[in-house]
Design a protein around this nucleic acid. Sequence first.
DNA 1: CACTTTCGTTGCGCCAAAACAAAGACCTCG
DNA 2: CGAGGTCTTTGTTTTGGCGCAACGAAAGTG
Lengths: 232, 232
Amino acid sequence: MAGIDRSLVRALPLFEKLSDLEIDRMLARATLRRVLPGEAVFEQGQKATQFFLLLHGRLKVTQVTADGQQIIVRMVHPGDIFGFAKALQREDYPGTPTAAAESVVICWPTEVWGMFVEQNPHLAVNAMQSIGQRLQEAHTRIREMATEEVERRVAHAVLRLIDQAGKKEATGIRIDFPISRQDIAEMTGTTLHTVSRILSAWEAKGLVKGGRQKLLVRDAAGLQILAEGLTS
Amino acid sequence: MAGIDRSLVRALPLFEKLSDLEIDRMLARATLRRVLPGEAVFEQGQKATQFFLLLHGRLKVTQVTADGQQIIVRMVHPGDIFGFAKALQREDYPGTPTAAAESVVICWPTEVWGMFVEQNPHLAVNAMQSIGQRLQEAHTRIREMATEEVERRVAHAVLRLIDQAGKKEATGIRIDFPISRQDIAEMTGTTLHTVSRILSAWEAKGLVKGGRQKLLVRDAAGLQILAEGLTS
DNA sequence: CACTTTCGTTGCGCCAAAACAAAGACCTCG
DNA sequence: CGAGGTCTTTGTTTTGGCGCAACGAAAGTG
């Protein structure tokens, strides 16, 4: 293994306040892995032997319920850590991260985490902030699911997507990876039928432009108004 | 201030692997505060100047949406840290923790957290595990809200309550603090009317015994079956 | 290029649960 | 102990959005 170049990760929040030397020491224990679209990095329920950092690409983390229903727990964006079962006090992975686009991940054995933290408390602080951020997001989603109707939830989900993975184009903002109606449904706790209806209605109003596995937001401000529920 | 006795906190997970000396040093910066039922420790939106540890009692953390709806984000049990905005990368408190029963909390100024962590990485690790646990719970709730119908959600919520705050009695397990139908509704994303109907139905089946601000679970196993959705 | 598979759209009936409404139970406090 | 508040129960009406179903369109496959 030729080693991973420090410049790839230097700027990530996780490595903030770490010295070059310390980063190199971590990277020395890491391996790189390429993940093809549709491929899973690991499977829900497997013993957690590694934790990961997404370098490039996009993953969706799904959970399957006992009765076979699937939901998307979160999206993983470049720079995020995932599969971090250690922090969750778990032995097994709680979900399955599947590549939505071709991705590259860094892998560490779980055992090295304790060692890294002993050597540098900043790492623990940075990781905690990342997890804290996710907790925040989770609470936001809980609040939305508890109080909002489907259309507003979908609006929020789409806004979040263009925020985290939006790419400006001539006619609007495109979601930068393949995403289906089914995916949006699994993110918002509804059915693909309902999502399809909603997106069709939005397209008729000129808010978005749909397509197979594609979504272009023409009028983010308009969506925002819908999300706030000011239309009544 | 006479100082807080170490024995009160020695056994808590947050202080695991810390020496007596280190705990004393932390307690030296802390103050105690008593919170009466109905009183809030702080208010949503306030600048986060302190973080807290619940020593005794029970708190419910609520968030209010822009349009005035309220939801219960989580319950705080003895030994839990809360108001930990630092970890969430926030300046203000995201929710309001209100005492459900008379409570005692330990308060620290937010600034001291960084100092404590520098001195002992274990503290960061312990705190991260606490937050990780909460993230787990949040994901569980999201999955429930997305896939389950109201009755199962309520069953799950009640089971979680007797797990975290259950007290064995002759005829069953009692929830150890005053809790209203409204509270349960706000925990499960429904209305108090629906919760009332569900509990009445359960009472008719002998699963629970209700009362004003009270709930006694007679048959936890029966509830579990409902929660799993095996009845169909 | 036909064949298959996957993904998206749309119409319709139905039901869980919310909204609306009203009355009853229990607690507190002057 | 009576008045007013809070909490709970129960009935009726209304509706959002799910389940079912069928069709259309695009992408992949041999």
